[in-house]
C-alpha cells in the first residue's frame, strides 16, 4: 500500500491487494481513530484481535496507514507484553505467577501441566491447540492461584482441575470467529 495515500482514499478501496477481507475490519478501526499516531496501541489491539498475532507485514501496513515510522510501530509492538509477534495456539492457558499465586502453589500447577501435556510454558502443544504462557500478576490475587483461559479468569485452581481444563481445550473445536467479533465491536 502506498504510504502517501489519504485515509479517505484508503477507506474507499474495496479490498486489500492480497484479497484478505480482514484488512477491511482493520481499516475501519483506523478510520474510527482518525488515523492518529496516538491511537497506535488501540489499533494494534484491534489488529491482533483480528489476525491473532502481529506479523511484520501487518506492522508495516499499520505504520503506513497512520503515517508513523516502521521503527516506532515495531518498538511499541515489542515493548508491550500483550502483543504477539508469533502465532499462538488456538487456545491460551495463561498461568499467573504473581506473588500471591506463587505462594498458593502456582509452580506445582506449572510442573504438573508441563509433565502431563509434554509442553513447557512459553510454548505451544504439538497439536497447536494450547499455548502455555505465564503472567506476572493478573490482578485477581483473592482467587489465587489463578489462570486466564482464553480471556476468562479461572480462580482457585488445583493441579487436577488445570489438567482437566487443558484437556477440554485440546479436544474442543476452533472458536476464533467469536473472538474476532468481540474485538471489532
Amino acid at each position: 500500500m502506498l504510504p502517501n495515500m489519504s485515509l479517505q482514499e484508503k477507506s474507499q478501496k474495496t479490498a486489500h491487494p492480497s484479497g484478505d477481507n480482514r484488512f477491511k475490519l482493520l481499516d475501519r478501526a483506523i478510520t474510527k481513530h482518525q488515523g492518529r499516531g496516538d491511537s497506535l496501541i488501540e489499533i494494534l489491539h484491534v489488529a491482533q484481535g483480528i489476525f491473532g498475532y502481529l506479523e511484520n507485514d501487518l506492522l508495516i501496513y499499520v505504520a503506513h496507514a497512520i503515517k508513523l515510522p516502521i521503527s516506532r510501530v515495531y518498538g511499541v509492538a515489542t515493548f508491550y507484553h500483550f502483543f504477539n509477534l508469533k502465532p499462538n495456539g488456538e487456545h491460551t492457558f495463561v498461568l499467573c505467577m504473581g506473588t500471591a499465586c506463587y505462594v498458593k502453589g502456582a509452580e506445582q500447577i506449572q510442573n504438573a501441566l508441563e509433565e502431563h501435556h509434554h509442553c513447557k510454558f512459553g510454548q505451544t502443544t504439538k497439536d497447536n491447540k494450547v499455548s502455555f504462557i505465564t503472567a506476572r500478576c493478573v490482578g485477581s490475587c483473592g482467587l489465587a492461584p489463578v489462570a486466564v483461559l482464553d480471556n476468562a479468569v479461572v480462580g482457585k485452581l488445583t493441579r487436577d482441575e488445570s489438567i482437566k481444563r487443558v484437556e477440554q481445550m485440546r479436544n474442543s473445536v476452533k472458536a476464533t470467529e467469536q473472538t474476532v467479533q468481540e474485538v471489532v465491536v
Binding site: 488501540e42 515493548f79 507484553h81
Partner: peptide, 20 residues
C-alpha cells in the same frame, strides 16, 4: 486499554502510553 506493561502504572510512563 493498556497492553500488559507494569511500568505503565508509573505516572509519566502512563502518559507516554496514552500518547501511543
Amino acid at each position: 486499554c493498556g497492553a500488559g506493561a507494569y511500568i505503565c502504572g508509573e505516572e509519566s510512563a502512563l502518559m507516554n502510553s496514552l500518547e501511543g
